[in-house]
Design a binder for these strands. Structure first.
Lengths: 218, 218
DNA sequence: TTGTATATTTCGATGTATCGAAATAAGGAA
DNA sequence: TTCCTTATTTCGATACATCGAAATATACAA
């Protein structure tokens, strides 16, 4: 009950991320996200449902149980703390941390997690601005807006990049968009799916797609 | 050829340690050391022999090939660097590092290894005084003596603990025997398998068994 | 009510690590 | 030379994560 396989942990982890984004949990979403076949997920969910980590009504619904959510929170915490550690202490860039963390996380002990948490000074966010769950309150109390939802003249600081794959993160870095960067919307044609922004004073143009995953604070 | 399973890495790693100690490589020695059945090792060796990492003359001899030794050196380096990192940067004690490293080592990238090496300032020895292979020269150039081989009046500093299981290391810590501790042999009865030593001025008595794995420099 | 598209599940199969029991070979003893 | 001890290997078996193909159930449309 305590020792999940890496594959099972990945499943729980990804399910938590889907739920965190407010999206629908399904076999196909998990399969896509984890890069495995649908039948692999069906088998996994059945196994995890037996361990009461998921509720599963075959063919109808999948959801995290309370204990599953609880456990997943711990896994997310571990993942994000490792990412933060790699970034802050070992010189990794924000596009490199996810891949390395994904492999390391299944191997480290609770002691390791708490040691790096302490070493980092109990950070609240990882290098992508994702909140690091801890103790009781994990909810991101910041009020963030999608860059794609902002209007001309609105401005603030980049606070979080949602779902950033390495290539996307490298792209953002090249545009000068990092956590904390000042951005202001300068032009947002209603006719097109783009937004013009000023990033630390430099003009950039972003597709709505990309802008939707950039969350701004303030 | 590049991607070995954790089990295969463990096998190579343990084989290297056996050879490093000058002992005989055998199926049973590996099985005992890795805590698996003999038949598991036979299968593993056959697989690794196919990959030219071991030379295997069935029922007669097992040895590391050049490329196997090469590869194992890298694995040992990785293991010992991780141990050193846990000890120096994350507050682990010398009895805790091996277990944690054993699990983490299979998951980290080359980049990670080089990052911690740099962060540590390119250490030459791990928390047990075992040499960390690097580049070309890995041989421990120190001239060390087993504490059990020393005579009354001989003295020096603890430089390495060989094969220290966690319980043994905790025991040594309790006796004040750490790397760098000053020790002097005060009495070594030829009639008995014990040795009396002064550790940082305090009198202690050790069994020959334990003393044989304590290496002294100077 | 019936049909059908689509998501899900079931059903063998594969590859890996592991086991214990039984077979077997090497090396030393007689 | 023959026998016996002991290490090693072979031989099924189990457990797991995975696959693709085929079967199937649901939900929605007609």
């Amino acid at each position: 009950m305590k020792t999940l396989s890496p594959a099972a942990e990945d499943c729980l982890l990804f399910a938590y991320r889907i739920v965190e984004k407010g999206e629908e949990l399904s076999v196909s979403a998990l399969a896509r996200g984890l890069g495995v076949g649908d039948s692999t997920i069906t088998a996994m969910i059945q196994k995890l449902a037996k361990q009461k980590l998921f509720h599963h009504v075959p063919r109808r619904e999948i959801s995290l149980s309370d204990s599953g959510r609880e456990l997943a929170r711990g896994l997310i915490r571990r993942h994000r703390l490792i990412e933060t550690y790699l970034f802050q202490k070992l010189g990794y860039s924000w596009d490199e941390v996810h891949g390395e963390a994904e492999r390391i996380e299944h191997a480290v002990s609770e002691k390791f997690v708490e040691a790096i948490d302490k070493e980092l000074g109990f950070p609240k966010f990882d290098p992508h601005g994702d909140p690091i769950p801890s103790g009781e309150h994990s909810a991101d109390s910041r009020k963030l807006r999608r860059l794609s939802d902002m209007h001309v003249g609105d401005h603030g600081k980049v606070a979080r990049i949602v779902d950033g794959k390495p290539d996307a993160l490298i792209y953002l870095t090249k545009l000068g968009l990092e956590l904390g960067s000042d951005v202001e919307v300068t032009y947002a044609p209603a006719q097109d799916e783009i937004v013009h922004v000023s990033v630390e004073g430099v003009q950039r143009t972003l597709g709505a797609h990309v802008a939707a995953n950039i969350l701004i604070e303030g």
